[in-house]
């Protein structure tokens, strides 16, 4: 029983090359080619498809919607995204929508074949080039949860300066607002950073948001 593939890509020549590549494999059979999302949905309704190979930068129906509709109408169809985009956001979005594989177009044909096989076995396949970018986001950052005590280290005035600094005010503006000189603001800032053990404004913003100073 061969695996039926549907190639969805708006570049006919690329489709052609792809067909040539997959048909080399004995257990793959191209059930059809679609030029657009609409055409793909039409074809799916008429033919039996196991895996859908999808280019996500096509004109017409936006790809995320296409994925949703396909999985809605044909829950058994597995989707492998074949894309030029190597950004983790695309990977996350399409896997989140229910696609089972994400392969870069620049990868070798064997990568795609591997992906197709993995997906058919019920697994998920992410292009090896992308796993590095994807993983840190899932491991997360260790959070430091001693901030409520740190808040008490600050004086009333320092708390206000801290809040304004986190909101992106310049020293001059904070000075004007609190009727003190920018130099004084600078020294408040140094004290705040020393007391809280902060390194830069990004730290400060993180601190301020954790302590709900920006409400």
């Amino acid at each position: 029983m061969p695996i039926h593939l549907l190639i969805v890509d708006d570049h006919p020549v690329f489709r052609c090359g792809l067909r040539a590549l997959v048909e080399k494999e004995e257990d793959f059979e191209v059930a059809g080619e679609a030029n657009s999302g609409e055409e793909a949905l039409d074809l799916l309704a008429r033919t039996c498809v196991d895996v859908l190979i999808l280019d996500i930068s096509m004109p017409g129906l936006p790809s995320p919607q296409l994925v949703e509709q396909v999985l809605d109408q044909h829950p058994t169809v597995k989707i492998v995204v074949l894309s030029m985009h190597d950004d983790e956001h695309y990977v996350r979005e399409f896997l989140g929508l229910g696609a089972k594989g994400y392969v870069l177009k620049r990868s070798t044909g064997t990568d795609l074949i591997q992906a197709l096989r993995a997906v058919c076995r019920g697994g998920t396949y992410i292009d090896p080039e992308l796993t590095d970018a994807i993983l840190p986001a899932y491991t997360g950052r260790p959070s430091t949860k001693k901030s409520s005590k740190q808040l008490e280290l600050l004086s009333e005035r320092e708390l206000e300066v801290c809040r304004l600094l986190a909101l992106g005010y310049s020293h001059t503006k904070i000075g004007n607002r609190l009727s003190i000189s920018p130099r004084t603001v600078q020294s408040h800032r140094t004290h705040i950073f020393d007391k809280l053990g902060l390194e830069d404004r990004a730290d400060l913003v993180r601190f301020a948001m954790r302590n709900n100073l920006l409400l």
Partner: peptide, 21 residues
């Protein structure tokens, strides 16, 4: 660049891979 040149090159790569095989 992304969709035309990149796609075309991808196709070249693909075709080349097929031919080599």
């Amino acid at each position: 660049l992304h969709d035309q040149v990149g796609q075309s090159l991808s196709r070249v790569l693909l075709t080349f891979q097929c031919a080599r095989r």
